[in-house]
Computed example of a mutant assay.
Amino acid sequence: MATFQKGILGGFSGKVGNVVGARWRGKNVMRSLPQRGSYTATAKQEEQRLKFKTVIGFLSPLVDILNRYFGSPQGDKSRANLATSYHLKNAVVNLPTGTVMDYAKVLISKGDLRGIDGGTVAAAAAQTLNFGWQDNSGQGKATATDELMVVVYAPELNLFYTNVAVATRDATTASVTLPNFMASLEVEVWASFSKPETNFAAISTYMGAVTVL
Rank of each mutant, 00 (worst) to 15 (best):
K44M: 13
R79P: 00
I65L: 08
G14W: 04
S184C: 11
N28C: 03
V164H: 08
K15W: 09
T177L: 05
G75S: 07
K141P: 06
T145F: 07
K195S: 12
S85Y: 14
L82T: 02
D102R: 14
A202V: 02
E197T: 00
Q74T: 12
M101C: 07
F52Y: 14
T3M: 07
T205K: 06
Y206D: 03
M1T: 13
V166T: 05
L129Y: 01
D76Y: 11
N94K: 15
K51M: 06
M207A: 05
R68G: 06
V29W: 04
G57C: 14
Y69N: 00
T54W: 04
N158M: 13
T173G: 03
Q35P: 07
A83E: 02
Q74F: 11
A191G: 08
S85R: 12
T128L: 06
K51S: 04
G115Q: 00
F193P: 01
V210N: 01
L88G: 03
L59I: 03
A209I: 07
Q74E: 13
L66V: 01
D112F: 06
G98W: 03
R169L: 01
A83G: 06
G119K: 03
N180A: 15
T172P: 01
G138S: 04
V187N: 02
F4I: 07
G138I: 03
A154F: 02
G17T: 07
A91F: 02
V212L: 01
A144S: 11
V100G: 09
S60T: 15
A83L: 05
T42A: 08
L95S: 12
K141A: 12
N180I: 12
K53M: 15
E188C: 08
L95Q: 13
E47L: 15
G26D: 06
P96N: 11
T168G: 08
K6H: 11
Q139K: 12
V150C: 03
G132A: 06
T211K: 11
P34H: 07
F193I: 00
I56Q: 13
G14M: 06
F200A: 00
K89H: 13
A201V: 01
V164C: 09
Y153N: 07
R68W: 05
S78Y: 01
R36F: 09
M30E: 09
S184T: 14
Q35L: 12
N81T: 10
L9K: 12
G10S: 06
F193D: 02
G118D: 04
A171L: 08
T84A: 09
T211W: 08
D117K: 12
R169W: 00
V166M: 05
N81R: 03
A125E: 14
V152N: 02
L129W: 02
M207C: 05
V150D: 00
P96G: 09
P155H: 08
K6S: 13
A167Y: 02
A142D: 01
V20D: 06
G132P: 05
G140P: 01
F12P: 05
D135V: 00
F4N: 07
V20C: 10
E188Q: 15
G21D: 02
N18I: 09
R36G: 13
T173Y: 05
V187R: 00
A41V: 11
E186V: 14
Q35K: 15
I108Y: 04
M1H: 14
T54R: 06
